[in-house]
Design a protein around this nucleic acid. Structure first.
Lengths: 238, 238
DNA sequence: CGTCTGGTTGATCTAGATCAACAGGAGTGG
DNA sequence: CCACTCCTGTTGATCTAGATCAACCAGACG
């Protein structure tokens, strides 16, 4: 799954064009290269904990990382998922504040840590980097507001369907017989934590979606058998 | 309520120290002064609509403005309130994107509009301005994530109590007899839209909070008669 | 006066939580 | 190789927070 990990260079990183480093010069890239520590991570590993101080940022080259927030009563929520090409933990770094949530590796990943000192230098030397981060935070807040509004107005069913469609848009494909298909990257209980439900409710929902004929489930594989009906349920445009 | 509106100057603005303009030079302040259009607004007026392009930012000098988001199914949600000293609509401007929500005046307000062109110039001439906006967006996303997590994990009752406590922390006072008191700045249905409830549920909640002895309500006035119990219900630290 | 808006109350219904049991791997260790 | 435990997921029975529908009331206001 993971190839020649030791020899990864930013200059040849396949996901760099998606990142905040996309328009660095060769020299600047060398700075990042010096300040970076890359390695594989297995599910369950934690990049940083809620409340930790930030000492740099993490760049997901491959895999999936979740932002988990634990509230005062111990309730856990998955706020956001970050996949390949996404920088994680940048917000606390920019704001010089403790991390508001922890970052947990959810699937086998290859991740580069970039030291804060180098990043600080980059931010002053190349204003484009700051702009990229601004873009990122603006996108994040937009996403979060959408989810928030959705959580206030729509049912668990709608939120579950929406989550599946988001996964489908990212990683969906058509199987041999042409059916729209996704492999869910999370276990049921994590999906439940994303949409604010109990795992039992997800189970029941899965069953009723199958009998309704909207989608079929095989473990983590989802076959969307009636796409029109799904989109209709979500208000067409999503 | 509103005093000598016509003569308001940024230089003497009582809330400037809270804003992104807090560390401008006199010259820079003059630039803002030139590019600003100040006036009173009455409840119901809309500063901009969701989907509009941004042509500047609004600085709330007095009053209250709500960010209202309407989703694809027509559900309305109050995402955020902005009171005196808060800049509104800056996100769309910075991101050069359409506004993600509309801004609606909720109580009699005095608001300055600042033209985008001038702001753009300021942003390049004084890097501190950009930093202030970055701080602002980071604070906003933190707030939103908190609300989001809360919406996924806690009951309407807890969310309602939390909202009241937020108002209390901002504008609370002690009445003649020393009771912690707040005047709610919103009508019931708007409060309902903030926490994702129906107005009827708010009514019933109000009644049960009174019989429980947690708080007493008189129209929009709230007397928090048992603060300890309220804090306990919210997990003490909030 | 009628009409509107904001708020309250009642009766009813249901989505989803909760509690509890159970089933199928996947290790792990003797 | 079997016994045991851990983990993920499923199902059943029950309960309840909160939505929904409908009526109603008090001010405000032209």
């Amino acid at each position: 799954m993971m190839d020649n990990k030791a020899s990864h260079k930013c200059a040849t990183c396949p996901t760099r064009h998606k990142t905040e480093w996309r328009d660095l010069t060769i020299q600047e890239l060398a700075v990042v290269e010096q300040a970076k520590h890359a390695r594989e991570y297995v599910p369950g590993e934690v990049l940083f904990h809620q409340g930790d101080n930030s000492d740099g940022v993490y760049c997901v080259q491959e895999g999936l990382v979740g932002a988990r927030y634990i509230d005062v009563d111990g309730h856990s929520v998955l706020l956001r998922l970050s996949s390949a090409g996404t920088t994680v933990g940048y917000r606390a770094f920019l704001a010089k504040q403790p991390h508001g949530s922890s970052a947990e590796v959810l699937s086998p990943s290859f991740i580069c840590f970039i030291e804060g000192a180098a990043l600080s230098r980059l931010l002053v030397s190349n204003p484009q980097v700051g702009e990229r981060f601004l873009e990122h935070v603006v996108k994040d807040i937009g996403d979060t507001e959408n989810l928030y509004a959705r959580s206030l107005t729509s049912s668990i069913k709608a939120r579950f369907l929406h989550a599946i469609m988001v996964f489908y848009k990212q990683q969906g494909y058509r199987d041999e017989s042409g059916n729209p298909t996704v492999k869910l990257p999370l276990k049921r209980s994590d999906i439940a934590e994303m949409i604010g439900a109990q795992p039992e409710s997800i189970s029941r929902l899965v069953r009723s979606l199958q009998t309704e004929g909207l989608m079929q489930f095989e473990g983590r594989k989802v076959f969307i058998s009636n796409m029109d009906a799904v989109l209709l349920e979500l208000g067409v445009t999503m």
